[in-house]
């Protein structure tokens, strides 16, 4: 899995590409934890843009659950956006789309992200 990062003002966008399976989960978790910690200052919002994420298994769901909790503790807004149909199905069947914020596209997620520091 490849992971890209973009920064828009106080928002960090994480873009995982490919498959978030058991083999990729630990590395992805480390990257998300680093983003939540921030370089010097923590971001106000973190958005995971899933438009290029083809596959997620329970190992990946676990990372999203832990990251959502960690963000909540740190007062950082955390959301996913642009889920592909296969990933959306996994989120819906597992009930995770009810406990993790999921937006239709990145523009909606960015519009809802706070504009002041956490």
């Amino acid at each position: 899995m490849n992971i890209r990062f973009e920064t828009l003002a106080l928002t960090t966008v994480v873009i995982p590409e490919g498959r978030l399976d058991f083999g990729a989960a630990a590395g992805f978790q480390r990257h998300v934890e680093e983003v939540l910690a921030g370089a010097g200052t923590a971001p106000a919002a973190v958005i995971i843009d899933c438009n290029a994420l083809d596959y997620v298994s329970s190992a990946g769901l676990r990372v999203f659950l832990l990251a959502t909790r960690a963000a909540q503790r740190a007062g950082i807004s955390f959301a996913l956006c642009a889920l592909t149909p296969a990933v959306r199905e996994v989120f819906d069947l597992s009930g995770f789309s009810r406990i993790i914020s999921v937006h239709a596209d990145r523009a909606t997620a960015v519009a809802q992200a706070p504009q002041t520091p956490a």
Binding site: S57, R62, L65, L66, T68, Q72, E89, L93, S94, I99
Partner: peptide, 24 residues
């Protein structure tokens, strides 16, 4: 099966895999 109506804080971290298989 995991309690899929549980809140973020209460949702179990494990046990999702077999549940997903049964759903799919």
């Amino acid at each position: 099966p995991p309690d899929i109506s549980a809140s973020l804080g209460e949702r179990a971290v494990g046990g999702q895999g077999v549940f997903l298989v049964r759903q799919m």
